[in-house]
């Protein structure tokens, strides 16, 4: 029963991870760019939701919309201003550029908001909900469902709209897509902005659960890498599954070993997948 409880806790965290991982996977899938600024974008989304709550009294369970919109705009600008110029360049330069964006955003936050730990106190996130013999924190439950809604929206966009189809087409084959009359530039901007929006929404939904400080996104950046690799680089479904697997793996490590080793297990899993099954858990080996 305790194991079941542990798995459930892991799944709830995993749902949030999944949302974050999807954002990273979208960017990698469409642009083949590993976005090292992803964790910093999550952090920006958290600060946005924090100020929406403290200044406007907007609960993060609505504030995620604001964070997502803000990050969509920021992502669009980042793409136009910084990412597009390095699109044809080596991944060496692309990684360095997004690393630069990461460092700049984190230290900008440090400069503007200081290194203090912040936290919001949300009544509805502090209750305990009983599900039969299991108990869960209402905050995790609410964030999980909100994340599921956002993931559903992203899915609906990708599979039910023309633009979403274009995004999938570019992810499938960047060279052939323009021959089909798809505007690769616009699709790339949308994908990058949407990836940032996922990070923003994810950050907002983490706010009721985590402390907030400028480097809060760094461990989440590393987790996004793990998820995207678990799912097969660039696969959105895979990254979502990767998020759930990661959540459960961390939770079980915490139970059977100690919490402090859960991230070691993450990274070992990550290296193992990279070396043994580079196409990810769901992926098929390419010929």
């Amino acid at each position: 029963m305790v194991v079941l409880q542990t798995v459930l806790n892991g799944l709830l965290t995993g749902g949030l991870y999944a949302l974050i991982g999807i954002g990273m996977a979208l960017v990698f899938g469409v642009m083949r760019i590993v976005n090292f600024a992803h964790g910093a974008l999550i952090m920006v989304g958290m600060y946005a939701a924090y100020f929406a709550f403290t200044l406007l009294g907007l609960s993060p369970y609505l504030g995620w919309i604001l964070s997502a919109l803000l990050l969509f705009a920021l992502g669009w600008l980042l793409y136009r201003g910084l990412i597009r110029p390095v699109m044809g360049q080596s991944d060496f330069m692309q990684i360095l550029l997004t690393t630069g964006v990461w460092l700049a955003l984190v230290d900008l936050a440090q400069l503007l908001f200081g290194a203090d730990y912040r936290q919001i106190n949300l009544g509805i996130a502090n209750a305990v909900v009983r599900l039969g013999p299991l108990r869960v924190s209402s905050g995790y439950l609410l964030s999980f469902f909100a994340a599921a809604v956002v993931i559903g929206l992203v899915y609906a966009f990708l599979y039910r709209t023309e633009l979403g189809r274009d995004v999938r087409a570019v992810a499938q084959n960047r060279e052939v897509a323009p021959l089909m009359g798809i505007d690769v530039e616009r699709v790339s901007a949308v994908a990058f902005a949407l990836g940032a929006a996922c990070a923003g929404a994810g950050g907002a939904l983490l706010l009721p659960l985590f402390y907030l400080y400028p480097t809060v996104g760094d461990p989440l950046l590393l987790r996004s890498f793990v998820m995207v690799v678990l799912g097969g680089m660039g696969s959105v479904e895979g990254a979502a599954l990767g998020g759930l697997v990661l959540g459960v793996a961390e939770s079980l490590t915490g139970y059977f070993w100690t919490d402090s080793y859960s991230q070691v297990v993450d990274f070992l899993l990550f290296l193992a997948i990279l070396l043994v099954r580079p196409s990810g858990l769901l992926g098929r080996q390419r010929a």
Partner: peptide, 22 residues
Amino acid sequence: VFQTAHLLIYGILIILVVLFLP
């Protein structure tokens, strides 16, 4: 000038190098 966050300059420099001084 800025007590903390002097790493900001790292981020900005690296972006400038990638874009203008590869």
